[in-house]
Amino acid sequence: MNNFDYLRAGTIKEAVRGIATQPANQFIAGGTNLIDLWKYDLTHPARLIDLNGLDELKTITELPDGGLRLGALVSNNATAYHPIVEERYPLLSRTILAGATAQIRNSATNGGNLLQRTRCYYFYDVASPCNKRVPGSGCPAIEGQNRLHAILGESAQCIATHPSDMAVALAALEAVVQVTGPEGQRSIPIADFHRLPGNTPERDNTLAADELITSIDLPATGYAAHHSYLKLRDRNSYAFALVSVATGLELEDGKITRARIAVGGVAHKPWRKPAAEDALIDKEPSPEAFGAAADILLAGATGYGHNDFKIELARRAIIRNGAMALDPSCQRPGAQPSL
């Protein structure tokens, strides 16, 4: 709610330099989460560095290795409706369109999507304790209202989930996040971008405070033939996932040759386990096969009362989404269940 300075950055360099001058400075792109957080008195920027003048981050370009570079400042909607994304990465397109609303997707950017904060009720209530917001203050969710919360990878400090849909598809697609900081550029595989809460739940990801996401790079494999995103939530649209699943398959002669499954709404980051995917190799896609993969993927899941249902729901969602992936044309708006 505080007042802040405002700077519209002209170059990436200027933006990165600007962020370094004051720890409370923050980048702003779409603003759809930052302004929300600011109005709830959860963040107090000293200066907002507006990235919207950085035109070089607003393009989608094909990469020499057959992949695709999604500029960090391309809006979620522009990404989802981009012809190449629709054709080669329909899993990503559909996943993005299952998130938020058209209005928010028009403002929200690809970089910002990855950086959105959890939707834990207690995190959002400045008068409640929350280890993510005020380290050491406690986590009321563990014994409180935890319907939204994590069943995997959580810690005694925090059971929040990451709310992004897009990140779940990016995890399945094995995207790479390109960032620029004062020391130059580096690449962060999506699996390493978000982190588990551990003893430092205040940190959502591995991006340094003075680093800027410049793009998200997709590898060549897009699972255009066999993919599905299934999102289960408390209403059919405009709600965060209780459980979501992004599945990409490659098949030969009726057998799975390559599989990727990422689960959202269950952890502090999109949840993937290569062992679960390996278990599908050479199998015919069947409820049993996906059930076995789900068992590996969800091993060790713990409920906290209100979210106990997620363990079984996630398993069933993985199985259903496997079936849906075989026939992507069955996909419904909002990634609602079909078949």
Binding site: D125, S128, P140, R235, Y238, P333, Q336
Partner: peptide, 19 residues
């Protein structure tokens, strides 16, 4: 335990949407 309502926003208090 906290003595309060906790989903006090239209994001988490779920009114029906068109869908």
């Amino acid at each position: 335990r906290l003595g309060k309502y906790i989903n006090t926003s239209l994001g988490e208090y779920h009114l029906p949407v068109h869908a």
